[in-house]
């Protein structure tokens, strides 16, 4: 198991480097530069800025100096926000996105599992159909529709929550977390339901019942282990996506998280910030995929056995 873990980590390094390298060169081939403005900036000013940020050096030299700084954990200064380093901005914004994402993840898991199990418990009846319908709506309803609807009802009509902002009230996280969570909750519900329904019909379940195992035990010990595999695989990238913030939800609710920087840094050609965001996201994806594999192995001895090979 440890060997497997070490091997996966070693594999992650070249993947990470490949992503970083590709993005580093791609952003530099996008038309325009970080200091383009509608108002004319004097050529000598652009020159001074390029020299200041080392953008006047050949591309390969810029790349190596980037890698060197990266090895020291330095992501460099933001071009858009003079006086702020990318490290500093990412640390501050990631904290907000992590809080919101974790809250959303808890909601998604709670709703997803409840609805999924309930739908699986009544696979044929009206209740099951209704629950499946609800989760389908959750998948289809985009955040930019759901968010404003929730604000209209709970902020503007009922006046329970603020319509935007973060941390001015402890309840500020509820609407955005719910908006963020619903899509994931719906996916989890569908995956859980189909997993449980599929496993319920299998031979080993009937055997377990025949041996006199209680319903609870059959569900929790036998069915769950196998039924949750697709859900756990899905949760890896889903958690990475939730925890690194969402552009749409952060914009609707005016949340100072990381998600908006993914888009704004690309629009501003803020090279260092783009790299920072991409690397953070890549690291999260790699880490959570690994984590979900490890959980799978813990749940299912067959997978653990394969890992040992």
């Amino acid at each position: 198991m440890i060997k497997y873990f070490a091997r996966r980590l070693c594999e992650a390094v070249p993947v990470f480097l490949l992503i970083v390298t590709a993005v580093f060169f791609m952003v530099r081939f996008v038309p325009g530069g970080p200091f383009d403005r509608e108002r004319p900036v004097a050529p000598e000013t652009i020159e001074a800025l390029n020299a200041y940020y080392g953008l006047d050096k050949p591309l390969y030299a810029q790349y190596f100096s980037f890698l060197k700084n990266l090895a020291h954990g330095e992501l460099g200064p933001s071009y858009k926000y003079p006086g702020w380093s990318v490290n500093e901005i990412l640390a501050e914004k990631a904290a907000v996105s992590l809080q919101l994402g974790a809250f959303a993840l808890i909601i998604a898991l709670a709703i997803g599992f409840s609805v999924g199990f309930a739908a699986a418990a009544f696979p044929k009846g009206k209740i099951g159909a209704a629950l499946s319908g609800i989760s389908l709506i959750g998948i289809c309803l985009p955040a930019f529709v759901l968010g404003p609807i929730l604000i209209l009802i709970f902020s503007l009509k009922l006046k329970w929550f603020n319509a935007m902002g973060w941390n001015s009230l402890p309840t500020d996280a509820i609407l955005p977390a719910f908006t963020l969570a619903l899509f994931y909750a719906a996916w989890i519900a569908r995956l859980v339901r189909s997993g449980v329904v599929e496993e319920k019909g299998r031979q080993y379940v009937r055997t377990a019942y025949a041996k006199g195992a209680s319903g609870k035990r059959v569900y929790l010990v036998h069915i769950m282990r196998n039924a949750l595999e697709p859900t756990i695989s899905y949760l890896g990238p889903a958690a990475a996506g939730l925890l690194t913030g969402s552009f749409v939800v952060e914009t609707i609710f005016q949340i100072p998280g990381l998600g908006r920087f993914f888009i704004s840094s690309a629009l501003d050609n803020d090279y260092t910030m783009i790299m920072g965001c991409v690397m953070l996201y890549a690291a999260f994806i790699i880490a959570f995929n690994l984590l979900s594999d490890l959980i799978l192995a813990a749940v299912n001895p067959r997978i653990a056995k394969e890992m040992k090979k």
Binding site: P148, I151, L152, S155, L156, K159, N162, A163, M164, G165, T251, I252, F253, Q254
Partner: peptide, 9 residues
């Protein structure tokens, strides 16, 4: 639109 809702709230 976020700003509009913030004003109304």
């Amino acid at each position: 639109n976020t700003e509009d809702r913030a004003f109304r709230a």
